[in-house]
Design a protein around this nucleic acid. Structure first.
Length: 213
DNA sequence: AAGTATTAATTGTTTACGTCA
DNA sequence: ATTGACGTAAACAATTAATAC
């Protein structure tokens, strides 16, 4: 480890089985290629994304190349250095995401080359971007459901009130002499548009106004 | 300086597909 | 021809951690 004093501190061994760049081969050729296996006993820091993970992409096949890659993302003290995308990189990624939320065949490599990033970084960006989109959509859905729930509650309350009114009218009919019921029953009307029973203005006044002995 | 939001990166799981016995 | 085991790749969810504000 030539680059830095502390960079070499993490000397945990990883045992990797790697074929020579077979992941970039077409699928039909991979099967045959899998038979040729070499043992990669390189010493790598655990934070390196292209070495420590089970997912491998075409850019991570050669040990020296790997070293150069993780060299760029490991700080002096061994901490992972976070890549900050430039505005141009973000714009280009956003543009291609707008066209397709998932990377098409070969698009990853192409984009990576254009952006001067590793294919894995492009892949990760798309994954995170999809996650962000999904989260935003979930928030929107949640808001919608909240409003819908509120309107259903309102409607429920209104119907309860209406039911109560109708019940009280029914009780009135049972207890009031028939000749006194007529004016009241006559003022009830069925609304043709909403199919709800409504009362005339005069009746409303009767109800809300002070009761006379 | 501490707290928070954002987001690149990691890890583990699921799913789909192809191959082989 | 069918089936189950196995390997691989891609996508995803959950989480971590660096960085900007």
């Amino acid at each position: 480890m030539a680059n830095n004093d502390n960079e070499a501190c993490d000397t945990r061994l990883t045992l990797g089985l790697a074929t020579s760049d077979h992941h970039s081969l077409p699928k039909q050729n991979q099967q045959e290629h899998n038979k040729i296996v070499c043992l990669d006993l390189s010493i790598v820091p655990l934070h390196s994304s292209d070495n420590g993970t089970s997912k491998i992409d075409g850019s991570s096949s050669k040990t020296s190349e790997n070293y150069n890659n993780f060299k760029n993302v490991i700080k002096k003290n061994g901490m992972r250095k976070k890549l900050r995308l430039t505005k141009e990189q973000s714009t280009l990624l956003e543009d291609s995401f707008k066209r397709h939320a998932t990377l098409a065949m070969g698009q990853k490599q192409e984009l990576a080359a254009k952006l001067k990033l590793k294919p894995r970084q492009v892949e990760v960006w798309f994954q995170n971007r999809r996650a962000r989109t999904k989260l935003k959509q979930t928030e929107v859905d949640c808001e919608f459901l909240k409003k819908w729930c509120q309107s259903l509650n309102d409607e429920n309350n209104r119907l309860k009130k209406e039911l109560q009114e109708l019940r009280s009218i029914k009780i009135d009919q049972r207890t009031t002499p028939f000749h006194l019921q007529l004016p009241k029953t006559r003022t009830l009307a069925l609304c043709s548009s909403c199919q709800k029973i409504s009362r005339s203005e005069t009746d409303e006044k009767h109800e809300t106004g002070p009761k006379s002995g």
